[in-house]
Amino acid sequence: MEDVVAAADLRARRPEAIERLVRENTAPLFHAALGLGFRESDAEELVQDVFVAFLEAAPRFEGHSTPRTFLFGILYNKSSNLRRRRLKEVSEDEVDARYDGRFNAWGIWSPKPPEQAALDSELKTHLEECAGGLSEDQRLAFYLREVEGESTDSLCNILGVSGTNLRVILFRARNKLRDCLEARWGGPR
């Protein structure tokens, strides 16, 4: 009953309903975007796009699924689009960052790799690199299951797949990561 009322409030675009929606769901969406490998600025842009898309689709939202599931479904679609858009920029940013990083504080070319690389923990580097090899659905499914503890039903709704497909996605995600980590540093011990 409460969900139906909340859905009606959101369809009517009541400010208090929108504020509640944003306050309750920004953190999980933002952290999921970071978990998908986006930088903070991109993650914030993504979260904003998700809420804008939600409000545009609000007249069709009838409260059959929770707003959270609906929002994560939008995040899944938007993240694929943003990743495609960022693909060129990322490769250019990496070249620029590497180039800049090879000059020391006096502006002299340094043969050493950038110090930033040494600051990152080995685990974080390897896990994030390996996660980069996963497809969008595999990465989101793995993140939502392991970090957010989402249920199977909720994951199926978010990704728009059947339970059988979700099992395959999780199996491939976990084994790709396991194989990748094993190859790099002897695997998770």
Partner: peptide
């Protein structure tokens, strides 16, 4: 290994 993978994911993200 799978348990360690989940622990690592929670540690990182």
């Amino acid at each position: 290994q799978l348990r360690a993978l989940g622990d690592a994911a929670r540690e990182v993200w």
